[in-house]
């Protein structure tokens, strides 16, 4: 798994590449916690190069979403493909997380 991040239009975009599974999710969660430790941040997770996610990854995303919300920030996701899109479609996470087709739409925050 590779993690890269940048700031744009007031958002922190975190791009995750590879697999988010039981072995790599703790590392992802730790990295996100370090990137967002000052709180009050609007975060976009760019999953365009994420090829795999399991319930361990979902658990990490849920933890990050709760933490961001409790500090006045927000979390949205974008660019889900393949298995990752299937897993999110099935798990109902779109009930509480905005999911956008790509980073451009996520940064505009204007519908899907």
């Amino acid at each position: 798994m590779k993690i890269a991040s940048y700031h744009e239009k007031g958002f922190l975009v975190i791009k995750v590449e590879g697999r988010m599974d039981i072995a790599t999710s703790p590392e992802f969660e730790k990295n996100c916690a370090a990137l967002t430790e000052q709180g009050n941040q609007n975060v976009v997770l760019d999953f365009s190069d994420l090829e795999y996610i399991s319930s361990a990854g979902l658990r990490s995303i849920l933890a990050i979403a709760k933490k961001l919300k409790s500090t006045g920030g927000s979390l949205s996701l974008c660019a889900l493909t393949g298995l990752v899109k299937e897993v999110f479609d099935l798990s109902g996470f779109d009930n509480f997380l905005p999911i956008y087709t790509d980073a451009e739409h996520a940064l505009a925050g204007d519908g899907k």
Partner: peptide, 22 residues
């Protein structure tokens, strides 16, 4: 509970649910 909001959402049981669906 797939309809739960962020505060009430838990991940327990999701693994088996995904197996059944996929």
């Amino acid at each position: 509970d797939l309809q739960a909001d962020l505060e009430n959402r838990e991940v327990g049981g999701l693994g088996i649910f995904l197996i059944r669906r996929l």
